[in-house]
Design a protein around this nucleic acid. Sequence first.
DNA 1: AAAGATTGAGTAAACGTTTACAAGGATAGC
DNA 2: GCTATCCTTGTAAACGTTTACTCAATCTTT
Lengths: 345, 345
Amino acid sequence: MVYDKENFKNITIKDVAKRAEVSIATVSRILNGKDRVSPLLAERVLLAVKELQYQPNDVARALKIKESRSIGLIIPDIENPFFPALVRGVQDAAKIHNYAVILCNTDGKTEEEKKYIQFLYSKRVDGIAFTESVDNKKNIALLDSLGIPVVLLDRRVEGMKASGVSTDNRLGAFMATQHLIEKGKQRIGFISGSPKLSSGADRASGYQDALLHYSIQYDKKLVFIGAFTYESGYAAVENLLLSRHQFDAIFAANDIMAIGAIECLNRYGIRVPEDVAVVGFDDIRLATWYKPLLTTIRQPVYEMGQYAIKLLVEHITGERSCPYEKIFAPELMIRQSSGGLEESK
Amino acid sequence: MVYDKENFKNITIKDVAKRAEVSIATVSRILNGKDRVSPLLAERVLLAVKELQYQPNDVARALKIKESRSIGLIIPDIENPFFPALVRGVQDAAKIHNYAVILCNTDGKTEEEKKYIQFLYSKRVDGIAFTESVDNKKNIALLDSLGIPVVLLDRRVEGMKASGVSTDNRLGAFMATQHLIEKGKQRIGFISGSPKLSSGADRASGYQDALLHYSIQYDKKLVFIGAFTYESGYAAVENLLLSRHQFDAIFAANDIMAIGAIECLNRYGIRVPEDVAVVGFDDIRLATWYKPLLTTIRQPVYEMGQYAIKLLVEHITGERSCPYEKIFAPELMIRQSSGGLEESK
DNA sequence: AAAGATTGAGTAAACGTTTACAAGGATAGC
DNA sequence: GCTATCCTTGTAAACGTTTACTCAATCTTT
């Protein structure tokens, strides 16, 4: 097959008008169904559309009505197991409203984020769903100055410049830590995510809240700053082991780090959950496939994606004008890695 | 913040022209750098662009030059662990060529595929990368009739109507089966994917090739038709167990089914790899996190995504006019689930 | 039956670019 | 110094839609 553009005359509204013997305005009106038209002409036009297999040119339409019916989705990395469900939620919701979603992976680089924002702006997307990598307000301000509606994904919103959807990370972390404490654990290591992200910072707060609530001394030596990656989870535990500080549990700020942590514990012959209990965060699909099954805090990721688009569309249409923050409830999923349901000692 | 479109006057090429005191044609020429222009004017224009923060309107451009600089990516489901790497490869390659990629999930429904094709056509995408769910040539023909360049992902191309990139599935399946045979296995169960897909059919052929090559009788009772899902892998093994046919190994046509199979085996107290060896296909990330580590056939998924876009772009630009089929080599990744590297008995 | 109100359809002007064509100015050749 | 050539720039016509106006025809109303 030769892809020769010349061979494919795109049929336009003009062709339809000619064949149906009406003006192009009439064709447009019938197709958009806004104005009243006579059934007679409507029938003729619809027939012509079918015969010619006419498909309106959305880019012309976009130019005229200043509405591209497309949205940008900016995330760090689709290969990170957290994101596929989110993306799917976004896409399914977008489909309902007839929006195309343009996917952008930034690897968490602020510079890439900025580039993509400009790229998306030149494409005149109607809105952007954005999981920013660092909580710098610069990019939000940029979006703001461009007049593009945004909703922040998985990020708490500071200063109310944009809408956002997230999970109550602080509460989730509290629940995770509480669960370990109730299991009889007293020396609970914590592997945090980047504290620059609201999700990272909030989970750290939740961990501390729980310790405080149960009158357990916060011990800085048990806390490591990870990067939400497998490797950083592994490294954190390795450091902890080498430091020879006692610990009987690990709470990792996401599942991948929890798995990295468990891998490392196993490597050193430490059993999970018998010797050390581990809890993660996110409840990615892997959590139920990994051995031991991972106890974790579930975020309703798919629903978050959906809700984000719902919000975004409301902003685009003007239905909603003030930023809104939707916070989903976390849920403790008790599985093997923390010792399961039964009480310990 | 109120998203009020009226407040954001989009600055256009006209504004730039006015400020730089030149014609819009000159601005366009300078920005596109095709024609020669005097350095003096160029400087004035570039200054104006910067001062006004002008960003060209790509939709107007697309309309004029009939090139939207966007491509569609149609896959069954981004939540299927096979796809994130593919998508990432596609997106990274697209980024290099400055194409936006519009993501579409069809859940493998032919009807959805068709809808998305039309949707993408109305958006006038320059090309489509397509992982079709069933090997029906209808949608390819549709694309063909619309004059949209396509490249098929992870699918062998029949009848040469489009370019494609895939892995040598038949060879991969041969290698997997061979590996099991060399491990001393003689009664190897096979859980196939959908035989309607070239990937499914080819892997089945490879399995049979290997049996034939080693003079092992093909036993229909050991073969199950799965659906590339966890559940179907689990169910296949359960059926096999209930049927009480002897078997000492399982080759599953993808990793998720292999994991489903192992889960089922475990459930019935059968050890992997001691009692039954298991090999999967794809080498998704989970294969190295799952316990036991999964022996599998690696496909270079990310590279496949990249290559697909390379091909697609060549078709779009007209650099390449005839369909081309790129076939990547599979690679056997020997891990725990098949008993590792050492020879058996 | 006349006049006003209502309706249905066409004309043409946008939307923001690119580019064929025209035109003017400078340079070169004689 | 005059013409021919080349360069640079501007003018205006597209690209395929939507929609404000306009206008003719029909329908009410009295």
